[in-house]
């Protein structure tokens, strides 16, 4: 096992930390999520490490629950986009013909509209619930996973070893799972990280616009929105969740970069 580069190590520790906080939010948080514990925008103190928010709730507590909401929604959306996108991508690549044409053109169409704009249109007509948010984010983003996994699988299916398996008389299932999938994995794993970052940024943006997670629940984007009014008066409460979003995205990015460089240099990868 090679040593882990320092940047990836930082990324791993921070990502792990964020997930730990998210999973055990109920145990870690010093106060209840919607408990009023002080004045409006109290400054940082021993009892309130990050001060209080726009209506007097403990900001640290809000941040910890915010981590849970943000990471939960982003993780669900990522899994949905990933499973949908890669399954359809592989099907399109191995089936070819009209199946491929239909799926590819549909994806072209959805991608012809910027994702944020299209999701705003959809959320106008749809109730903004957490389930709907996850569904909209997951399906819209699965178009990108579809394109990547289809491209990767098409590259692999023209390889001679896949042809050799066909000539041997192997079934379609063997070809997908034994020949194509193992070789498609490393680009897809790196993409998983990027899709997760995208989901974090996306849910934050929606919530910031008031169209994401609804009060009293709040993700980090919602926390920025709640506290943004204070900024003009020099109260930096909105910056804490803003920085948290950036920190999570950067740490996942560092890990994804490392995974990508590591998996391509594995045994059996490109080059010795």
């Amino acid at each position: 096992m090679r040593r882990i580069p320092i940047s990836a190590l930082i990324g791993l520790i921070l990502t792990g930390g964020f997930f730990f906080v998210a999973i055990f939010a109920q145990l870690i948080a010093p106060y209840r999520m919607d408990e009023l514990v002080g004045g409006v925008w109290d400054p940082i103190s021993a009892t309130h490490w990050l001060g209080t928010d726009s209506i007097g709730r403990d900001l640290l507590t809000r941040m910890i629950y915010g981590a849970q909401v943000t990471i939960f929604v982003a993780t669900c959306a990522t899994i949905l986009s990933f499973v949908t996108g890669s399954v359809l991508g592989f099907i399109a690549a191995t089936a070819g013909g009209w199946v491929d044409q239909a799926l590819s053109r549909l994806v072209d169409l959805v991608m012809a509209i910027p994702t944020l704009i299209l999701s705003l249109v959809i959320l106008t007509a749809l109730d903004v619930t957490m389930i709907n948010l996850i569904l909209v984010m997951g399906f819209l983003d699965s178009t990108r996973v579809f394109r990547l996994s289809r491209a990767v699988a098409v590259d692999i299916t023209v390889m001679d070893y896949v042809e050799a398996a066909r000539l041997r008389g192997e079934k379609q299932g063997w070809i997908i799972f034994s020949e194509v999938l193992p070789n498609a994995l490393s680009p897809l794993v790196a993409e998983l990280g990027l899709r997760f970052i995208f989901a974090v940024l996306f849910i934050s943006t929606l919530s910031f616009l008031g169209l994401g997670v609804q009060p009293p629940l709040a993700d980090w984007g919602g926390l920025v929105k709640e506290n943004s009014a204070g900024l003009v008066y020099g109260i930096p409460a909105a910056l804490a969740p803003a920085i948290a979003i950036a920190a999570l995205a950067i740490s996942v990015n560092l890990v994804a970069d490392w995974v990508l460089s590591r998996t391509t240099s594995l045994k059996g990868g490109r080059g010795a």
Binding site: Y161, A164, P182, N183, G269
Partner: peptide, 11 residues
């Protein structure tokens, strides 16, 4: 095949 490289599954 001509290219033994691509005729074997690298994994």
């Amino acid at each position: 095949y001509q290219m033994a490289d691509t005729a074997m599954n690298p994994r």
